[in-house]
Every structure is written in structure tokens, then in C-alpha cells.
Design a binder for these strands. Structure first.
Lengths: 157, 157, 157, 157
DNA sequence: TTTT
DNA sequence: TTTT
């Protein structure tokens, strides 16, 4: 039985382009570095900033999407869990690493649905890039269908 | 494309036993009423309590588990999203309803893994009920296997 | 004693400009309408979208900031709690309203630190608008000071 | 300006009694070790458990409450943020530590409002300990006062 | 009523 | 190493 909740919610900017590797089985594993900055007043009344750099990992399908769409500087929402790892380095020393294992990701700001052109969104890209064409007629929030209309596993939003 | 995050996290107690219905397709739909109480000081310095009653719905497999394990009074963690519904009553009046559509649930407190005995945990149960055995030898967080050991879709915790 | 957790996390776009009112005591109360859209496949395999419109309220200092900086279309992060209200309309009918009471807000995307020029970011604004000038030398995450260096209420980030 | 969200939500059990220290300024700093366990199926279809041990710190008033009420084994809800620290050990080696800086805490299960009797809830306590009195007559959610009734900083729940 |  |  699972016991406990281990949930992390981050909104931050990428410090560099994502790195994607593949397992023997062919699963994508994408790693990014995500910055979150907070501010507080110190005892002298001055604003003090502090930035945390989160090591975030995306696996499988999400790893492929992250590798394709994320780029240095992008702002992103990440939901996942904390994982503490302990391993022995080549020098025989024990080392610790903390990672955020993402299970949801969403790009923020503009240009969200657009696949990234290459390292760091190089701007030499031709102007003829096709429009994202993702128009959508927003569904009005109407009444739910009566229960009998549901099919199996037909879970509403 | 999904746009936006709509996330609700609740920890509260059930106001009554869950109600489970089934769709034509056989999917379980369990509804519970969950109370969360908060406190604040009013302008006279007195503590003021306020309780929100959340209407929480569980679908499918989670609906079956909720119907089987939850009981009035139990404390529970729920994660889900808000859904606002609008429908027309039998009197022709428009009505609004807000629901939390759960996608994760975890029972809290003791006796967590124990199926519920019946309505409201009937206390005629023999006193000899074995202890919940909540002890747990936490697994030590050891090093992750090297990446090449992963098989497809073998996503680590 | 507070009992329970009632937490909402939203990332969405504003459907219109915020409305700010003031209480007799002079406290700002700003209301916005926030859209979150999700997608799922229906039983025919087609993508179905659904948009929830959240009524979000900001009070006090946060209400002033929200009224000044938010504008129609902006993407925003909101954290708060759900509040269900029941009141009697002028027709004697009971009515229900669900609101998100915000206790944290953060603007997303570009132009974050810039005060809004007026209704819906009117673009007739002169090009000479001064630069936001919010540069910052990111603090390197260094070691925490030894505990004895802390002063009272000097809570680290 | 703060940029980013760094939020952690944990529900877990304490691995041992909390440790409280005080800064020169007299601020309480309480540290606990919190376990969260998750389960997944491995490629052979067997359930694999994994436990993360979170190092959680409470400061100030919250640190005093945590030191007084928490005990080994207790189940607790914690909300806070991740902080990565890097410091140089006495051997000159760089070391890393990840901590959760709590800004909200709530005890779960029964006996929530009861101060802890000593290390690990010693069971020599007399059997006549009064019932936790966990009953609660939930306040009915009534209509909010009209806005003009609010005084300054009189923020509703 | 928003956004891509 | 990001962002405004």
C-alpha cells in the first residue's frame, strides 16, 4: 500500500536546453535544470533573493515531449515528486542527489504549442514558419449528461 | 491542447457514508461530502471557524475503492480538479453545482488498509479486531540502477 | 483548531479585466474570471475540450496588486482555497456561488513586472515606455550561515 | 521580484522524535524526518515499494508547535518549499543537503490537538486519558456579509 | 469571457 | 545556468 503524499509543484525557468538520453529499452529520459527565485526581507529591511536550481527528470512519453519542446529560458509548470538518491562515486565517496521526478508538465507564456527549432530557440529560423493553427471554439460549460449516458471508463473531465 | 492547471488538494473528514452508483456501462461513481474547517481571528480577536463542505466524486476503479473503504468520519486526502456544472432543474430554473473530480485518494489515520465493515463503521464489531499493524520498516533509499538497466516504460518512482 | 486542508492551485488566463471594489474600511477586493482548459479523448477517440471558469477573489494588499497588474488575457498562477457561498437572491430564491479565495498570485509569461496601462493592455501606448529595469544578479546558492548567526524571526527562505 | 513557485506538499509519518534547537535570537528551529512511501509494479508485475525520507525544518512559532506536538510515528501534513544547500565539511569536501522548509503543518489522525507527553508518546501514560473529543459540529456555510460590513484587513476565510 |  |  502506498503511504503518504510526496508532491512537488514548480513554476520556473530553464537554465539551459534539456538533455535527453535513451535507455536500452528505448525510453526517453530528459533532464532539465529549473530555477525558482524567492524574495524576503532580511533583518536590515533589504530584499534578499535566493534561487533554487531544481534537477527535474521526465521519463517516457513526457521525456520526449520535454526534449522536443522545452528550451533554455522557457517558463514551465512541473508537477512531480521528490526523489533522494545516494550512490557511490568513482572515488569511493558516497554522494547524494535530489531529483524531481516529473509526472506533469505544461509550458507557460507565449509560443507554447510550438516545437523548439534547436538549441536555445535560435532566431536564424526562416520567417516562413507555419502558424501554430491550434484554434479552438471554447466549449461552453453545459450540464453533464445523465449518468446512464456514460460508457465504461468514460470518466468525465 | 490543454491550457491551464486546475488542481485541488483536500484533507478532511467525511460527513456521511459514500454513495455509489453505476453507469449503464458499469462504471462506479462514488460521491462523498468532505468537510474542511479553517480558523481565523475576527476583528474582536475571537477565533472564528468556518467549514466548507466539498462534494467529491470518484470515478471508475477509484470510485469502487472509495465506496468500499471510505466511511462517515474518516479522514482522507483527496487530489483532483474543480468542475462547475450548470443544469436546468425540473422547475425550469437554472441551477449550479460545484464538484471536485478526484483523481487521487488516500485514507489517513489508523486502520487505513482495512475495508469498511458497513455503514459508519458499525461498532458492534468484536473488540478482538487485530491491531492495524501500522508499523513499517522504511526501505532505505539506495542508489538508482544505471540507466542502461531500465527496460521500456520502466519509469522509476 | 483548524482541521483540514483546502487548497487550490490554478494556472489560467483571465477572461476579462479585473474588477476592484473597496470595503467601507478601505480594503480592496478584486475579482477576476480565470479559465482553465483540459482535454481528454472521448469514446470515439476525438479530443474533447472543456473550460472551467473560476471566480477568483483577492483581498487587501493582494487585491490592490491584482487590480493594478492583471489584465484580460494574462496568464496567472493563483493559490488559494475554495469557498462555497449560499445566499438569498432578491427573488427570495436561494442561490449558490463558489469562489476561490486567493492568498498567492504570480503573473506568468512576459511583461510580468509591468503595471497594466489600462483596460486590456491597450496597444496605443507610446513606444517610449521605460524599460522595466528589474535586473538582478542571481544569488548563488551558498551554504547557510551557522545557526548562531540567526537573529530572532530571521527565518531563512 | 519573486519569480517562480517552489511548493512541496507532504503527507507522511515521522521517523523519530523532532529535534528542536534555538538560535541566538531565541528562534526555535525544529527538524524532523518524514517518510513517504510509494508503490509501483516492476517489470515482473511485482509491487515495489520505495520510501523517501524528507528532512523537514520548521522555524519560529511553527518550530515550537512542531517540537511540542509531533512525535515519532505521527502522521502529518506539511507544506513548504525545497531548499538545496551546499556546504564544506570539516574534511574540506563539499557536501549537499536538501531540506524542506515548512510553512504549514497539520497533524493527522486521532489525538491531533493533544500535546505530546514525551519521547515517542510513552505508553506508560494512565489509561484515563480523556477521549480526544474529535467530534465536531460543522458550521453551516452561510451567506457572506455584504461587502460594506468588512472592516480594514478583515479578510474572509 | 481567456489562451495557443 | 533561467527569468523580469
Amino acid at each position: 500500500m502506498a503511504r503518504g503524499i510526496n508532491k512537488v509543484i514548480l513554476v520556473g525557468n530553464l537554465g539551459n536546453d534539456p538533455e535527453t538520453k535513451y535507455t536500452q529499452g528505448g525510453m526517453a529520459v530528459t533532464t532539465v535544470s529549473l530555477a525558482t527565485t524567492s524574495v524576503r526581507k532580511d533583518r536590515d529591511g533589504n530584499n534578499q533573493e535566493r534561487t533554487e536550481w531544481h534537477r527535474v527528470k521526465f521519463f517516457g512519453k513526457l521525456g520526449e515531449i520535454a526534449g522536443e519542446y522545452l528550451r533554455k529560458g522557457r517558463q514551465v509548470y512541473v508537477e512531480g515528486s521528490i526523489r533522494y538518491d545516494k550512490f557511490t562515486g568513482q572515488d569511493g565517496q558516497e554522494r547524494y542527489m535530489t531529483e524531481i521526478i516529473a509526472d506533469e508538465m505544461q509550458m507557460l507564456g507565449s509560443g507554447e504549442g510550438r516545437p523548439a527549432g534547436g538549441p536555445s530557440e535560435r532566431s536564424e529560423r526562416p520567417a516562413s514558419r507555419p502558424a501554430p493553427a491550434q484554434r479552438r471554439e471554447p466549449t461552453s460549460s453545459s450540464a453533464p449528461p445523465p449518468m446512464d449516458d456514460f460508457a465504461d471508463d468514460d470518466i468525465p473531465f
